[in-house]
């Protein structure tokens, strides 16, 4: 399934982030299967990094844990190659730039293609550096970046990022790292409205701080759907039955 089809055909989309190699090195595939069975629309697979500056304690913890389990980009791509045979919803990758640089940007993009990865979220790769140094490598192979916008992003910049997006825009719900419950509601509402009124060409998914049915519903009123990360990572942290815990988690969110 292509991401663009999903955006054209459905609203109130639910996307889930989880950290590859967590809680066990080989849980990546079972987590993906559980998420697809639970009816999640698409998934962000987190590539663990030692120094995730945009993440709060939950995702930091899962990243450290996954690295201690022995996850690496090479291994992750092997897992994703296997996953491709087992799940059919779209997958995107999310992670910091340094491991990709070390892996080799061209080789990374090549592996994305081989594993049916449609997009990548690279939080520490600003649009300008992407545009100048790496765009050609990604575009040539049809793998596209997903850019973040925040309450501080100007309209002008939102337009720039919108015009240069091929998949969707990632709207960060409040000025914070991942896993913090959303901030000032009035201010946030004004931000949601501001972005909604811009009538962007790209679909918009809201993430950061979405953790329950209430926050999910709220952002679905303004955007195409929500991305949930920390809340799900916490839910499977000590899980003995990922399949059923994922099912009940998704039910709870969808309401």
């Amino acid at each position: 399934m292509r991401l663009t089809n999903i955006f054209n055909n459905k609203s109130d989309l639910l996307s889930v982030y989880f950290t590859a190699g967590f809680p066990e090195l080989n849980s990546t595939i079972s987590v993906l299967e559980a998420l697809e069975n639970a009816g999640v629309d698409f998934v962000e697979v987190g590539m663990p990094f030692s120094d995730p500056v945009a993440d709060g304690p939950t995702i930091q913890g899962s990243s450290t844990h996954a690295l201690n389990n022995g996850i690496s980009l090479k291994l992750l791509f092997e897992q994703l190659e296997e996953a491709k045979k087992r799940v059919s919803f779209p997958l995107i990758l999310m992670g910091y730039f340094n491991p990709i640089l070390k892996f080799g940007v061209e080789r990374f993009v090549e592996r994305c293609v081989e594993c049916d990865i449609q997009g990548v979220i690279l939080p520490d790769m600003p649009y300008e550096i992407y545009d100048e140094k790496y765009r050609h490598i990604f575009e040539k192979r049809g793998v596209f970046p997903i850019f973040l916008i925040t309450p501080q992003t100007t309209d002008e910049r939102i337009k720039l990022l919108d015009e240069n997006s091929s998949l969707f825009l990632y709207m960060v719900s409040s000025s914070s790292v991942t896993g913090k419950s959303s901030g000032n509601n009035m201010q946030q509402l004004a931000y949601f409205k501001r972005v909604a009124e811009m009538k962007l060409k790209s679909p918009v998914m809201t993430g950061f701080g979405i953790s329950d049915n209430k926050s999910f519903k709220r952002v679905c009123g303004y955007t195409n759907g929500a991305i949930i990360g920390s809340a799900y990572v916490s839910a499977i942290k000590n899980s003995v039955d990922i399949e059923s815990d994922t099912l009940s988690f998704v039910k709870r969110i969808r309401g």
Binding site: V53, A54, F97, P123, D124, M125, P126, I129, F147, L148, I149, T150, Q152, T153, T154, V172, S175, S176, V177
Partner: peptide
């Protein structure tokens, strides 16, 4: 090489 949140 910074997250969008730090850009402003």
């Amino acid at each position: 090489f910074i997250p969008e949140m730090l850009l402003p």
